[in-house]
Design a protein around this nucleic acid. Structure first.
Lengths: 111, 111
DNA sequence: CGCATATTCAACCAAATGGTTGACCAAACC
DNA sequence: GGTTTGGTCAACCATTTGGTTGAATATGCG
């Protein structure tokens, strides 16, 4: 049920994975290229990519022998919306934000 | 460095902890009362509260023999801002939200 | 003082996490 | 066809995580 949030937040809790997401913000990348800047085996990066994929944060498409990784930022929405639920009590001006919530929020149940 | 995000996202990755935060949204609570709805030992909840405290998501103040837990939603801001960096490419109507960001965002660095 | 209440500490445990290495499979190249 | 290239799989390992229980430490109450 809250499994979505579980996997997304867990995926985001690792600095390597966040760095990968940031890289993919620039452009789609092949697995090998994703791995290149890290001092870590390709297999390890491959595992990170699986975790990101399961969280829905990226998608992977194999073209030829190259597997391309693409950022899927929409997966962050649920988590983001959940977090925003806590922002509403902050003192700063949230008028624009509240208008945003009215449009975006389906419901605010959560356990 | 990105340790902030590490601890906050990791803290949010657990459903029990998210439920606790949601409860604290209503009001400040004593540790025992926080633990009450969960089918889990008080010690376990106490540990969860430590994790939330270390992440800065709650604060705990001892008054008498009771320790009160208070939500600190500001700790979510860094994480939220980091995530928003990915949202800016989403197609859906974010006008209200973007106005919100313009006011709220300090900077968007992170790796 | 003596007991109940509120909370943490310490030791322990099973399962999950993040990494390694080496074998393996599939596509591409000469 | 044989070899390089791209990537995953499998087994393994150390550490962390999320839980337990029982003892310990305050604080408050009669």
């Amino acid at each position: 049920m809250s499994n979505d949030l579980d996997t997304v937040f867990a995926a985001l809790a690792d600095p390597t994975r966040r760095a990968i997401l940031a890289m993919l913000l620039e452009d789609d990348m092949a697995v090998t290229d994703v791995a290149e800047p890290f001092e870590m085996s390709l297999a390890a990066i491959s595992k990170h990519l699986v975790i990101l994929t399961k969280a829905g944060l990226i998608s992977q498409e194999k073209r030829g022998r190259v597997k391309w990784c693409k950022l899927e930022p929409d997966a962050m929405r649920t988590a983001s919306v959940w977090m925003q639920g806590f922002g509403q009590f902050e003192p700063v001006n949230l008028d624009a934000f509240e208008r945003f919530l009215e449009v975006e929020l389906p419901a605010t149940d959560e356990a």
